[in-house]
Write a protein that binds this DNA or RNA. Structure first.
Lengths: 234, 234
DNA sequence: GTGTTTGCTGAGAACCACCTTAGAGACCAC
DNA sequence: GTGGTCTCTAAGGTGGTTCTCAGCAAACAC
């Protein structure tokens, strides 16, 4: 977070998604510009020099692929994170993630978006982003390899468990409410109850606690959960 | 409290709640403007440039979500603290804590409102507010972690105990009547007796006094209670 | 001193938050 | 398909939390 903020261009025709992404990304320190169709996207990419583009595949005027093709032909090599509906993924997206590109299926979770953006920027070295290794307390999380080591021992996690742990770790020593956790770790259209957070915290504890000196995830009754490190800092 | 006062826009269709919040917030040094429906809220947010909005989810003309959506689409990124009825929480909460936003269920306590507002402003760094660490006398309260240290030793408190202690500490060396305490720490529709304040003061003392040199909560008979620090500051 | 008021505290009942687990169903790999 | 993993729900159990009450102690007034 030292130098200039990372510039993100968001391209999606659904205002809801656009606002959701804008709000979330801005809050995470990115500079965001959002447009709703392909033509505007090309213009914005040309003039705004974004560091990365979040690009919906289905746009009203032209496909997201056409947008990138146009950009490449203009020698604009900004990396792209495609957003696709679940059924578009298999056949269409394959082979598109050339270069540093990647794709994400809708509905996604906000924490996942941030993580993917940082992964792409790390790979393309276009900007200084957070380390790919997140080390907090007794746990080391390697974002590139998707591996977690607890006091030197590797532990397997399901995708959701991994995302939850990452969110807790990146907010170490701060209480997070179940609503916050739900909003960031689960997909944005999740319609279920907050009890699922309790379940997944339970799963994490079952795997983590046998390997740590003290419980790392503490319950703040009536408030939420907190990933706690032994050392106390301000 | 150095520079300009923090501007709060209150949006609620119930005049009682509006007055309650306005009075309380003004008394706490905020500059308050209150409206009763969504359209007025959008106009007020546009013209008044508030630092934060307290927004009821159920409004007569449009939902609180629609209001924020409209604001976001106008690139007005002011953080929002949603006010929801208890039964709305479960299904509707998803997406509320995106960005710097947060939510509070009705009925709430006034002290909680202040604390949440300060927490949001702290996170979004939109204004200079109090530190997240409240240190008064021998007690250190970390608001982010919801942890309290008494002379270096961590002490657990229930949510109500915590709120009471926070209220006493933030009014250190000032006598608070039981009625004041009840009004600020308990939910605004609490129907019980003031004896409960005595009970909770007793709970606090039982936990605090063994760790402090002298009692920190003193009784002013016939008046109320006071959190007392050894050194006296203005 | 006596009586009255006010505050303190422990006990207990009702409630609620949380933990854990089992299981149904979706999804994926082979 | 078939088996396995993963997600999510539901339900029982547990202990924490809230609040009331009643008896006792302390302060006060006379």
């Amino acid at each position: 977070m030292a130098s200039d903020p990372i510039k993100v261009l968001v391209v999606d025709d659904e205002p809801n998604i656009r606002d959701l992404l804008s709000t979330s990304l801005k809050f995470n320190g990115f500079s965001v510009y959002a447009v709703g169709n392909g033509n505007d996207a090309v213009v914005a990419a040309e003039k705004g020099h974004p560091d990365i583009i979040l690009l919906d595949v289905m746009l009203p005027d032209m496909s997201g692929f056409a947008v990138t093709k146009k950009l490449r032909s203009m020698s604009i090599d900004v990396p792209v994170l495609f957003l696709t509906a679940r059924d578009e993924t298999a056949d269409k997206v394959t082979g598109l993630t050339v270069g540093g590109d990647d794709y994400l299926t809708k509905p996604f979770s906000l924490d996942e978006v941030i993580a993917r953006i940082q992964a792409i920027l790390r790979r393309t070295q276009k900007a200084d982003v957070e380390q790919s290794v997140l080390e907090v307390g007794e746990i080391i999380m390697n974002e590139d390899a998707h591996e977690v080591f607890v006091n030197g021992e590797m532990v397997d996690f399901s995708p959701t468990e991994y995302k939850l742990l990452r969110f807790l770790m990146s907010n170490a020593n701060r209480v997070l409410t179940k609503a916050q956790i739900l909003d960031h770790v689960w997909e944005y259209d999740f319609g279920g109850e907050m009890g699922i957070v309790e379940s997944y915290v339970s799963y994490l504890r079952k795997k983590l606690d046998p390997l740590t000196k003290e419980p790392v995830i503490v319950t703040k009754r009536g408030v939420g959960y907190m990933y706690k490190t032994p050392k106390k800092e301000k």
